[in-house]
Write a protein that binds this DNA or RNA. Structure first.
Length: 817
RNA sequence: GCCCGGGUGGCGAAACCGGCAGACGCAAAGGACUUAAAAUCCUUUUCCCGGCAACGGGAGUGUGGGUUCGAUUCCCACCCCGGGCACCA
């Protein structure tokens, strides 16, 4: 059964909140530098915040808060309260009760927690329920239809008999439905709408050059493989005509036309349309059995099988007559659905042909090898052609070029490029989702809904039937409409769009959320885009992240945007694992972050997920460490509470002051550098903990002056990670307004420096002693000092020093015998 | 099968450019405070050996080799775990 649709009232409220927020951010222009930070949201349609969300958002939020404090203008979709800037927002300010916020009585902060969870509740599937959003999905669809980028055709699609609906590719897991893990997915031929993403295949590939360095290499690699461009040749093998069959050719695709003199048969996919004419009844049954047998099996497990169809085709280069076979390993979905088998130069063909005693005839001699075929060895990539008629003697690469040209000149083929990427099927038989805005008229055919009639909105009352037909078909007032062209009776399209359509462009709308006449004003988007930093789970590497790149190029081509790519930099954060599996609603293994937040507070929940693991790593969820973070925030709060009213007395013990301030500046340095580069917030938080540990140890001896400075900086450096506590400290100190109005504190490199360098002294690479000397001490002096060290004297006594390695300010290593 | 990640204490992890392995936290043990408990504060905590102790010695980052004065880090081979792709002609 399909899931129930969401409560529109509830969602609409949240949705408007978000637009307000996005808009507000932009209005707050306190910087001339346009910067745009956007988060990728996990698809999690529910009212609660789960731990996968909180991870995602904590990372982006921390970064956004930091950037904001650095004076950047931040466009951030998550909402103002997510930043914990109570004084900035009237509603939040009214609700906030600062003096209630104590960690001894954290339960009193429930209001804060609820707001916190509220603002994070957004996902792709919810957005598809939002009627205001349909309009622009439909608008884009019509633009693409106009340009031939959207089209309708009959195609094989994944079908789950249990759900009774079409499944997206990513919803098929190991050949089975993601929700019914033992139910094999079927292939059904249905009329579907497609977006012509393959038109952009080359651009999607070529523009990856611009993403190098900014996007993780593995994501780019996955996309390259997914697009799967290969250059080759299409060649027609003419049928040898007989009484039963005509003379139309079999077109094959090959990347190795240079091996064509070694082609000893032609093999068709069992689904190949020509089988209808070529096969007798027995053959057809055999082909059907093959299709069924491999439908849901691991392709690697299937033995290569085939049968001779009883007909022959002619190799147009050699004129040779070769048998036609049907083979279960030939894919109808790739190339032309037919191959020429060259067993001498292809592993799969070799396996197939030796099984059926089809001749193996080598035609490529490797550069320094023999012509013999040894299946243990790799089949030669390149070499020189032999036994290849007029082409013999040519090197492979040149032969491929010239033989392709020859095919074209003789009109029996051409050079061709094939992609693994398929056009994007967007039709879904689900109730929720954007209705596809076309009308089927018996006279005029497919007629687009006029722009003036957008949006086409889903009817309110729909019975979820689970029959596999769109439930919308049972709603006459939705389905029965007059044709916009001829006015006659017509039927509305009842399929809805894939939710990936929405997610392909949602972030653009943040720039201009209230626009009523377009998805967004191009000038508004031009100000913010392209995105400086996108954050998302690696699970979207080839779906969402290709679709949104495609959408960007499409929008550029219709004049809406100027950028070629949506995001300059991409950060893929790790997945949250619970009970050994990726946390997801469909697996039922989600852990609620609300539970953590309501018990320990939002700051603790957020900080804990940042502290546990660096963000790019998968995180195995366990809540054992939460207590530690909670205790730490309590330590900070107690320390501040008892010291915030200190008067700025000058240092009584300058040594202590220097020590504490040094640690302070080292910590600031660490956090600042981390925010600018690798976002290892776990070590940032660890270093703040170290600072607080020192503060506890030196509390009594620290001067009032230093104390106040440390507390102020502490509030500021905690702000990205624990905004509520940070604000509380700020007010505790008597400071006015939001802590985020204060700029991020600069560190002083001089103050961060240690007075003396710690020199590690090793003997044969083993640590034996440490000595402390001023920075910049010359090498010779380091060696002298090391030799003079008591422990070293002992360690090298009676031995011969062969060599001494000195690394300035760092290390002396004595090699002794 | 192919392509990516990863393997470090009882646990999550740190070590950013080849230079102190185990920062920080959890858990555990001990102590202080308390009638008591909780909370808090302080101490110990990689393993083995010696010592009452301060301390000293040795081993140690999946396994086996290599490069190097020096390897968790670089190279080769292998094992294990996770993810992606999987007959793409």
């Amino acid at each position: 059964m399909p899931e129930k649709p969401y409560d529109h009232n509830q969602i609409e409220l949240k949705w408007h909140d978000r637009w307000e927020d996005a808009h507000f951010y932009k209005a707050e222009e306190n910087s001339s530098k346009p910067k745009f930070y956007v988060l990728e949201m996990l698809p999690y349609p529910s009212g609660t915040l789960h731990i996968g969300h909180i991870r995602n958002y904590s990372i982006g939020d921390a970064l956004a808060r930091y950037k904001w404090m650095r004076g950047f203008n931040v466009l951030h979709p998550m909402g103002w309260d997510a930043f914990g800037l109570p004084a900035e927002n009237a509603a939040i300010a009214n609700n906030r009760q600062p003096r209630d916020w104590t960690l001894q009585n954290i339960a009193a902060m429930k209001k804060t927690h609820r707001r916190f969870a509220f603002s994070y509740d957004w996902d792709r599937e919810v957005s598809t329920c939002e009627p205001a959003y349909y309009r622009w999905n439909q608008w884009f669809f019509l633009k693409m239809l106009e340009r031939g980028l959207a089209y309708r055709k009959k195609a094989l699609v994944n079908w789950c008999p249990q759900c009774a609906t079409v499944l997206a590719n990513e919803q098929v897991v190991d050949g089975c439905c993601w929700r019914h893990e033992s139910t094999p997915v079927e292939q059904r031929a249905l009329e579907q709408w497609f977006l012509r993403i393959t038109d952009y295949a080359d651009q999607l590939l070529d523009d990856m050059g611009k993403l190098e360095g900014g996007w993780p290499e593995r994501v780019l690699t996955m996309q390259r493989n997914w697009i799967g461009r290969s250059e080759g040749t299409e060649v027609d093998f003419a049928l040898v005509p007989s009484a039963k069959i005509g003379a139309q050719p079999i077109r094959v695709f090959t990347t190795r036309v240079d091996t064509i003199y070694g082609a000893t048969c032609v093999i068709l996919a069992p689904e190949h349309p020509l089988n209808e004419q070529l096969l007798d009844e027995a053959g057809k049954a055999q082909a059907k059995a093959m299709i069924d047998a491999r439908a849901n099996r691991d392709p690697g497990d299937i033995e290569k099988e085939g049968f001779f169809v009883g007909h022959y085709a002619v190799n147009p280069y050699s004129g040779e007559k070769v048998p036609i076979w049907v083979g279960n390993f030939v894919l109808i979905t790739y190339g032309t659905g037919a191959i020429m088998a060259v067993p001498a130069h292809d592993e799969r063909d070799f396996e197939f042909c030796t099984r059926y005693d089809i001749p193996v005839r080598p035609v490529i001699r490797p550069v320094d090898g023999s012509l013999a075929v040894d299946p243990k060895e790799a089949f030669p990539e390149d070499g020189v052609l032999e036994n290849s008629g007029p082409w013999s003697g040519l090197p492979s690469a040149e032969a491929r070029r010239r033989m392709s040209a020859h095919a074209e000149a003789q009109a029996f083929g051409k050079a061709a490029i094939t992609y693994r990427l398929k056009d994007w099927g967007i039709s879904r038989q689900r109730y929720w989702g954007t209705p596809i805005p076309v009308i089927h008229c018996p006279h005029c055919g497919v007629v687009p809904v006029p722009e003036s009639q957008l949006p086409v909105i889903l009817p309110d009352r729909v019975e979820i039937t689970g029959t596999g037909r769109s439930p919308l078909e049972n709603v006459p007032e939705f389905v029965n409409v007059p044709c916009p062209k001829c006015g006659g009776a017509a039927r509305r399209e009842t399929d809805t769009m894939d939710t990936f359509v929405d997610s392909s462009w949602y972030f653009y709308r943040y720039c201009d959320p209230r626009n009523e006449s377009m998805p967004f004003e191009p000038a508004q988007v031009a100000y913010w885009f392209e995105i400086d930093q996108y954050i998302g789970g690696v699970e979207h590497a080839i779906l969402h992240l290709i679709y949104s790149r495609f959408f960007t190029k499409m929008m550029r081509d219709i004049g809406l945007v100027r950028n070629d790519e949506p995001a300059r930099r991409l950060f893929t954060q790790g997945m949250v694992i619970a009970n050994g599996a990726k946390m997801s609603k469909s697996k039922g293994n989600v852990v609620s972050a609300d539970a953590v937040a309501s018990r320990y507070g939002a700051d603790t929940a957020r900080m804990f997920v940042l502290f546990a693991v660096p963000p790019e790593k998968d995180a195995d969820w366990r809540d054992e460490g939460v207590e530690g973070v909670y205790r730490f925030l309590g330590r900070v709060y107690r320390f501040v509470t008892r010291n915030a009213d200190r008067v700025p007395t000058p240092p009584a013990d300058p040594e202590t002051d220097r020590k504490v301030l040094r640690k302070l500046h080292q910590t600031l340095k660490k956090i600042t550098e981390d925010f600018e580069t690798r976002w290892h917030f776990n070590t940032c938080i660890a270093s703040i903990m170290e600072l607080v540990n020192i503060l506890y140890a030196e509390e009594a001896n620290l001067s009032g002056e230093a104390m106040l400075e440390v507390i102020e900086k502490l509030a500021l450096m905690l702000a990205p990670f624990a905004p509520y506590l940070s604000q509380e400290i700020w007010e505790e100190m008597g400071r006015e307004g939001p802590v985020f109005r204060h700029e991020w504190p600069a560190f002083d490199p001089e103050l961060a420096k240690e007075d003396l360098a710690e020199i590690v002294v090793q003997v044969n690479g083993k640590l034996r002693s440490r000595i402390y000397l001023p920075f910049g001490t010359p090498k010779e002096d380091l060696e002298t000092e090391a030799r003079g060290d008591e422990k070293i004297v002992q360690a090298i006594a009676g031995k011969h020093v062969v060599k001494v390695i000195v690394v300035p300010d760092k290390l002396v290593n004595m090699v002794v015998k």
